[in-house]
């Protein structure tokens, strides 16, 4: 055919296409949370103990494990949501960019502004779509260019195209999947750094689940995400890093512990700990 200069050049070498999706190398990871020997007690009951690991910036970290292993308890420590639970006592340390999250002088409200949270059940306010997203910025005094901010958040949550013509309609008129994306828009409207997602898709159908998972892939460019999920395949699909929590049973007590933390690919192809292997292959219990 000779030398054709008008052909479309392909920048990506074929070998790169064939390469496996790896989590970024350890030297390229920036620590956001440094969790040190974390334990949580509710009264006399120890919910989790001895949790020790780093959570990295612009990655999706999944927390998986059987019911009652302390996944949700753990993630709630990351933005001090457990402060609101009577009798909850947090031991150990969580350093957020090197600063003790539970240190004196740290304002929990400011912590929760920087570290947002999305829950299992979509929980929009019974207000308009616009007001749901604008509520956070208004409360925090971010009133400048509010329309732009709302649009940016809705675009970030991949919802803008679906709702741009009905922003004044009630948020409750949206489908479950749309409501959950609205909650994500609400969370990112105040420009947090971290998003904590506690079972964000477990109440959604497969199509809405896919859209949330796709959204998460997009969000990690701007945010650090931590997701609790009981759906192992969801963790395998979305997460860069996976932490497996399990229950340690002894002396009539059941305590959540971190068993293994590694790149998701490692956890799902060749885990190091037999307990992880048993859990992910369904041989648990």
């Amino acid at each position: 055919m000779g030398n054709r200069s008008d052909t479309i050049s392909i920048d990506v070498a074929p070998v790169e296409i064939a390469q496996r999706r790896h989590a970024p190398l350890p030297e390229n990871r920036e620590v956001v949370f440094d969790v040190q020997d974390l334990g949580v007690r509710y009264g006399a009951t120890t919910a989790v103990s001895g949790v020790d690991f780093d959570i990295y910036r612009n990655m999706i970290t999944a927390v998986i494990g059987p019911s009652g292993c302390g996944k949700s308890t753990f993630i709630r420590c990351l933005n001090r949501m457990n402060d609101l639970v009577p009798g909850a006592q947090v031991d150990g340390k969580i350093l957020y960019h090197g600063e003790d999250l539970y240190g004196s002088g740290v304002d929990p409200v400011e912590v929760r502004r920087r570290i947002g949270m999305v829950f299992q059940r979509p929980n929009p306010f019974p207000k308009s779509i616009y007001d749901n997203v604008a509520w956070g910025p208004r409360v925090l005094g971010m009133r400048k260019d509010l329309d732009e901010r709302v649009e940016r958040a809705l675009r970030g949550a991949a919802l803008w195209e679906e709702v741009k013509d009905r922003l004044k309609r009630s948020a409750l008129s949206l489908s479950g999947g749309q409501q959950q994306r609205l909650c994500i828009a609400r969370a990112i409207a105040i420009e947090p750094e971290v998003l904590l997602l506690d079972e964000p898709a477990s109440a959604l159908d497969p199509i809405a689940t896919t859209s949330i998972e796709e959204l998460m892939h997009g969000l990690k460019r701007d945010f650090t995400l931590v997701i609790v999920t009981h759906n192992m395949q969801q963790a395998a699909r979305v997460a860069d890093m996976t932490a497996f929590f399990s229950l340690e049973v002894g002396e009539g007590r059941r305590t959540g512990v971190l068993v293994e933390y590694d790149a998701t690919e490692k956890i799902f192809t060749n885990p190091s700990d037999q307990r992880t292997e048993d859990y992910v292959t369904g041989r648990f219990g």
């Binding site: 885990p271 992880t276 292997e277 992910v280």
Partner: peptide, 9 residues
């Protein structure tokens, strides 16, 4: 069955 870990291998 979506096998993982040893099962996948």
């Amino acid at each position: 069955q979506t096998p993982v870990a040893t099962d996948l291998r």
